[in-house]
């Protein structure tokens, strides 16, 4: 509702700068949420906290994608990285019973898959889209093959209310009463945003994604940086996988990522390859998923559930179709860099 209002605003008065627009949009959104909250506090709180949690794996996946693409490597294997990490953290949790070790192994699994992607696209000079596809198919096959039905995790990450902050009506339960990976994700978004635009590493990363040969001239090792970045980015997809098994569901199912890795790519594009933008986009998608679940449970609506189930996927297509042309990917994305 809020977004459509902002869009019409831009059409009528094109001169309004983006800051005013964002503030206006935020105020409008706050008004709508407050109005809804007055009418039905329980449902509104439930939908909004579900929005935050649904957006967690999406924004993590988008972080993985955007670090790769900022360095010049397309990653369509996020889905596979997440799935593999979800499985590894599940298995480690089943056999050690330790949540911390389980999350760490999930992150390592994501990084391992990232390294594999980097090796395929840089070392073996494979087409990056095919490299990502190999990861997706490989993860689906390996996890399905080694998965045994009947295993259950020992425990699940609980919600940690942040003292008095969690007592604030509406904002408290939505923002300050979440499980650890969700908190961590909020911090990571800000950290990556800072690192990408305010540190030497960020400058180098953006340089090798925009103009690798110029970066090479000033002494940046393009391919080594790409290797490191794509492997490191895998950690975020790994964390997303760990989130799915250890925080959201509490068990593993075959193919449980359900396209989230691909939705994360759309989130990244919608967010214009920036962490903060991706976060906003992920919240929009999270809201679509949360609202869809709410609609299915409330049951007082005539639409068949299959059509409600399509919502997140339809939204992905609409967002891609509407916004791709207006945001520009890193110039050297998808190109192999070789020195003469």
């Amino acid at each position: 509702m809020a977004t459509s209002a902002t869009v019409t605003k831009t059409n009528t008065k094109k001169k309004i700068d983006s800051k005013t627009m964002m503030i206006g949009g935020a105020l409008l959104l706050a008004a709508v949420v407050l109005y809804k909250y007055m009418n039905d506090p329980i449902t509104t709180t439930a939908v909004l906290s579900s929005t935050i949690r649904q957006s967690t794996p999406l924004v993590l996946g988008a972080l993985c994608g955007l670090i790769g693409e900022r360095s010049g490597i397309i990653n369509i294997g996020i889905e596979g990285q997440m799935l593999m990490a979800a499985f590894v953290s599940f298995l480690v949790n089943v056999y050690t019973g330790n949540l911390f070790i389980a999350i760490t192994s999930g992150i390592l699994a994501g990084m391992g898959m990232g390294l594999f992607l980097a090796w395929m696209s840089i070392g073996l000079k494979m087409d990056q889209i095919i490299g990502g596809t190999v990861i997706n198919i490989m993860a689906l096959g390996l996890t399905s093959f080694f998965y045994q039905v009947g295993l259950t995790t020992k425990g699940k990450l609980p919600s940690i209310p942040l003292g008095p902050l969690a007592e604030i009506p509406l904002i408290g339960p939505v923002l300050f009463d979440n499980p650890p990976i969700t908190y961590l994700t909020m911090l990571l978004v800000i950290a990556v945003q800072f690192a990408l635009f305010r540190t030497v590493w960020g400058l180098r990363t953006r340089a090798i994604g925009e103009h690798p040969s110029a970066a090479d001239t000033v002494g940046i090792n393009v391919n080594l940086t790409r290797y490191l970045n794509v492997s490191f980015a895998g950690a975020f997809a790994g964390l997303a996988g760990a989130y799915l098994t250890l925080e959201a569901v509490g068990s593993f199912e075959r193919g449980m990522t359900n396209g989230r890795g691909f939705v994360a790519l759309a989130v990244m594009i919608f967010g214009k390859w920036t962490p903060l933008g991706s976060w906003g986009a992920a919240l929009l998608f999270g809201f679509a998923s949360a609202y869809q679940t709410q609609l299915q449970f409330s049951g007082n609506i005539e639409i068949p559930h299959q059509f409600i189930g399509m919502l997140p996927y339809l939204l992905t297509i609409i967002v891609l179709a509407g916004f791709v042309g207006r945001s520009r990917p890193p110039a050297a994305v998808g190109q192999l860099y070789e020195t003469e």
Partner: peptide, 16 residues
């Protein structure tokens, strides 16, 4: 017409 890459749209259309 929009530039949306077919890898994502075809996957989304699979779920739809």
């Amino acid at each position: 017409y929009t530039g949306a890459h077919e890898v994502i749209t075809t996957i989304m259309l699979n779920y739809i």
